[in-house]
Design a protein around this nucleic acid. Structure first.
Length: 273
DNA sequence: CGGTGGACCTGCTGGC
DNA sequence: TGCCAGCAGGTCCACC
């Protein structure tokens, strides 16, 4: 579900609600996520004060003044939001942190593909989930030139490359498809066959599409909700994703769907070469 | 080494 | 109406 813009939307929504709040209670109702939630570790958050939230790739990092950071990944269907304590439980509500103001930070995840770990704040970089992540799309070190150079000997299709978090962090299926459309690149094109100009177009397109989506509050197709339970409005701006059979906005062709690495890819066979 | 395909888990949709 | 295959926005690992 959530890619970089959705996770960033959640981060921005949660930040003012969580910053400065003390964790007064921790309840793990269902610890069987993608990896087990360690109740002993979670309990150590009790008494700590949340000092801020960061995002790295599709991970959220909730920092505390206790030297501990709560690492959260939303998987495909994870939701994280702040609720009044009296509110009825939602389906699949697995973890609840009660806050000093009486409200609650709640985590729900129907498919349980998400993940939640308590880490030492000064050792985050060493954690296996964070260690091998590639540069953030908005990192100035990521340039068309840098991508051109790291892809010279590789045969992977450019779509798969974009979704590889070791190459670039935070890009999932929707934004990979949308970026390639805007850059005019065929999703099956091998990365070593993309020239300097292509990587420049791709880098520009990637940042534009992510920026626009963040501004719209992310894409809600099925399960995405922000920190207040609201939806994102970028779905109407998608030009190829989930538009198989539709007329291309730029030419007379029809949007196609193919499967790459077991995932749907949507593209315009005429605009993307 | 690099790349592909299957596995994890639940819920919804569309076709019969 | 009811059933079931197919599909879903992520990531890891075994295997070639």
């Amino acid at each position: 579900m959530p890619e970089l813009p959705e996770v960033e939307t959640v981060r921005r929504g949660l930040e003012p609600l969580l910053r400065g709040r003390q964790v007064t209670g921790v309840e793990v109702r269902e610890g069987r996520l993608r990896e087990p939630v360690v109740r002993r570790d979670m309990a150590r958050l009790r008494g700590a004060t949340l000092t801020g939230i960061r995002r790295r790739s599709k991970y959220l990092l909730l920092d505390t003044d206790a030297g501990l950071t709560l690492l959260v990944h939303l998987g495909m269907t994870g939701r994280l939001w702040v609720s009044d304590a009296g509110r009825p439980r939602q389906p699949h509500e697995h973890v609840v942190l009660t806050l000093g103001d009486g409200r609650q930070l709640r985590y729900a995840d129907a498919r349980r593909f998400g993940l939640m770990h308590v880490l030492h704040s000064d050792r985050l970089e060493a954690h296996p989930r964070l260690r091998d992540l590639g540069p953030e799309p908005f990192d100035p070190a990521l340039t068309g030139d840098s991508l051109y150079h790291v892809t010279r000997a590789r045969r992977v299709p450019v779509k798969n490359f974009l979704m590889n978090t070791r190459a670039i962090a935070g890009i999932g299926n929707i934004y990979a498809c949308e970026t390639l459309f805007r850059a005019g690149l065929h999703p099956k094109r091998q990365v070593r066959r993309v020239g300097r100009a292509g990587w420049e177009r791709l880098t520009t397109a990637l940042r534009a599409v992510l920026q626009e989506s963040i501004r719209a509050g992310g894409t809600t197709l099925r399960d995405f909700y922000n920190a207040e339970g609201g939806v994102g409005y970028f779905a109407v701006a998608l030009r190829v994703y989930d538009r198989e059979g539709d007329r291309c906005e730029r030419c007379v062709s029809t949007i196609r769907r193919i499967v790459q690495g077991g995932r749907s890819t949507f593209y315009c066979p005429r605009c993307q070469r």
